[in-house]
Nucleic acid binder design. Structure first.
Length: 189
DNA sequence: CATGGGATTGACT
DNA sequence: GTCAATCCCATGC
């Protein structure tokens, strides 16, 4: 069962931490979230910092929606829109531990180790086949769905660190990783 | 309308 | 360690 909008309509840091251990599904493929980052309109690394534009419209919209955008002209990056509508905030899904459909992921990603299939935000969208056209779609009804993990209450132990690949607000420790998981992207915290 | 900069990755030195 | 690929879109004239 997927989460309701109330799960996403909370402070983005809480959602980012709680998403570790949850499962992303897309077209029958699935993986467990092992790494996330939080972004909020109050800090300049967030796309929403500049206010509402055609690009950031999704970020300011309903929580529980996918924000998918193109990075460096090449990769699609998957985010979960958070906080109440009107607040620009989202959780970037940075890495998954593959669960279902590993062979199909390998067909898209090439002959790499399982640890490298989804160990980065651009890698996991390629492995799952998530595209730009899915920007603005529901994470509750699909095609991309996030649901509770099978690991029981509370999820796995989480370690926090600084966000990766940004040039502004670099000191905020808004990156969350599953402790000791080999599917987390480099550098490991 | 022209320009410049990325929430990255993989190949190469 | 360095570096190019590649394109959307925010910004400024």
């Amino acid at each position: 069962m997927s989460f309701g909008t109330e799960f996403y309509a909370r402070p983005v840091l809480e959602v980012a931490r709680d998403l570790i251990g949850c499962v992303v599904e897309h077209h029958g493929l699935a993986g467990t979230i092992v790494e996330t980052e939080a972004y909020h309109e109050s800090e300049p690394a967030c796309h929403a910092f500049v206010g509402v534009t055609p690009r950031t419209r999704t970020l300011f919209g309903e929580p529980g929606v996918a924000y998918v955008y193109r990075s460096y002209g090449i990769h699609a990056l998957l985010n979960a829109v958070c906080e109440p509508a009107g607040v620009g905030a989202a959780v970037l899904i940075r890495a998954l531990e593959p669960l279902v459909g590993i062979e199909e992921m390998r067909e898209r990603r090439g002959r790499v180790r399982v640890q490298d299939l989804c160990s980065g935000p651009g890698k996991l969208t390629q492995a799952l086949g998530v595209e730009l056209a899915e920007n603005g779609t529901s994470l509750i009804d699909g095609p991309v769905v996030i649901r509770r993990g099978d690991g029981g209450q509370g999820g796995p132990p989480v370690v926090e660190g600084t966000r990766i690949g940004i040039t502004k607000a670099v000191d905020l420790r808004w990156r969350f990783c599953a402790v000791g998981n080999s599917h987390v992207s480099r550098p490991r915290p």
